[in-house]
Amino acid sequence: MKKIVLTLSIAFALACCSNDDGSTTPEAMYFPAVSGDSWETKTPAELGWNESQIQSLLDFLQLKHSKSFMILVNGKIVMEHYFNGHTSASPWYWASAGKTLTSTAVGIAQQQGLLDINDPVSDYLGQGWTDLTPTQESQITIKHLLTMTSGLDDAANGDCTDPECLVYLAPAGTRWAYDNVYVILQQVVASASGQTWDAYFDANIKNKIGMTGLWSQMDELSVYFSTTRSMARFGLLALNDGKWQNEQVIPQSYLNAATHPSQNINKSYGYLWWINGESSYHLPQSQLEFPGSVIPSGPTDMFMALGKNDQKIYVIPSRKMVVVRMGDAADESNWALSGFDEDLWVKINAVIE
């Protein structure tokens, strides 16, 4: 009897300590040093992946105009590939995947007591930041900009955020529309902190996790450019609940809210993050609701930073995984989501499952 109990105890202990890769020793999350470019690796074979499918994935990525592709597991690099003349030192634009950087800065500023996301935007920018009446404008909160529910006319403003471009269409909170007016949040953070946007971002995000890169004007918007590894660093920060090594960079409760449904109109959208595995979604530039998950073949717990022409950060907590893709549009030019997301996950699944 004692022998049976001992055997069961050992089996239970091993099961409790089992990792996703089948090993029985718990593996702590790895973080590359803040300075320098060294980064520990792990092989697909160590994870038990289907190595025979890797070349098919890489061929697909090259065919689809990719410049780089990375997979991290537990923080370590498992795949890192560059295409079409791109290198590990080459910067590329995040496009709207960088919206998540802006969302993150807002959450940090709130934690610091500099702002409250339920406050009207006009509390920080003053009256007249839009072309709305004072009453209409006062109804738009920071949270409305974070959730794409400002009620401003997205078709009228395009990439313009001058007051005359920001016109009324619907009451704040009643309509979801993918809109670049979110960039106003950078002005809010700058005003609340008394710093330039760049200085605040560098001190509170970039320098804390060892990112490189800079903000630059592109199509009238402030867009982030960086290397692929810097993009992966940010994905790793999000994967680890906003904590980098021993420092809580992003408030955990805020990041949790940011990566879960933020309103009832588009259930697949948080605070400038896309969310997989929900019951319905809206596409950018559309008021139609579609049933099902954004990426049916993708993990149901995945949340995503998605940018124009297929800039991607996929964060998958259940697999302790981050996937990054940079490049030109895989097929046709797109705003953030495209058929490439589904096709790519079919290829990834063939490798990792």
Rank of each mutant, 00 (worst) to 15 (best):
I71L: 06
S56D: 12
K2G: 14
T130E: 01
G22H: 12
F234V: 00
V324R: 01
Q217C: 02
E342L: 11
S122Y: 05
S286T: 06
S333R: 07
P261H: 05
N204A: 04
L63K: 15
Y314S: 07
A336G: 15
F69I: 07
Q252D: 12
T43D: 12
A15S: 12
F340S: 02
S103P: 03
I54E: 13
V121P: 03
V323Q: 02
F290A: 12
K243E: 13
A336D: 07
C165N: 12
A28Y: 00
Y178R: 04
L214T: 15
D331T: 05
L236I: 13
G113P: 10
P163F: 08
F234P: 00
I295G: 02
A258H: 05
E289C: 14
Y178H: 10
T130H: 00
A232S: 02
A45C: 10
V78S: 01
P291C: 00
G327K: 02
G213W: 13
T133V: 09
G292R: 11
S38N: 13
Q127K: 06
Q311F: 14
K64A: 14
P171E: 13
A105Y: 02
G158Y: 06
I316Q: 08
M1I: 01
V34G: 10
H282K: 14
T87G: 08
I77Y: 03
A11N: 02
Q287H: 14
A258W: 14
V5N: 08
K76W: 07
L166I: 00
S230T: 09
H65Q: 15
V315T: 11
L57Q: 02
V183S: 10
L255S: 08
M326D: 15
W92P: 03
T196I: 01
D37R: 12
M231Q: 14
I250C: 08
D179A: 09
S138F: 09
N276A: 15
L272Y: 03
A89E: 15
N266P: 01
Y271D: 03
M70V: 14
T174N: 04
Y82T: 07
L288C: 03
V323F: 04
D343P: 13
Q112A: 15
Q139Y: 07
S9V: 08
S103G: 05
T141D: 00
D162E: 09
T174I: 06
S96F: 03
G270Y: 02
I316A: 01
K312Y: 14
Q263F: 06
G298Y: 00
D162V: 11
D328A: 11
L72D: 05
T100E: 06
T161S: 02
A350I: 05
E46P: 11
P291R: 04
V346L: 14
I352W: 13
G75N: 07
D119W: 13
V351D: 04
S262L: 04
N276K: 12
Y224K: 09
H260C: 12
S23E: 07
P171G: 07
F201G: 01
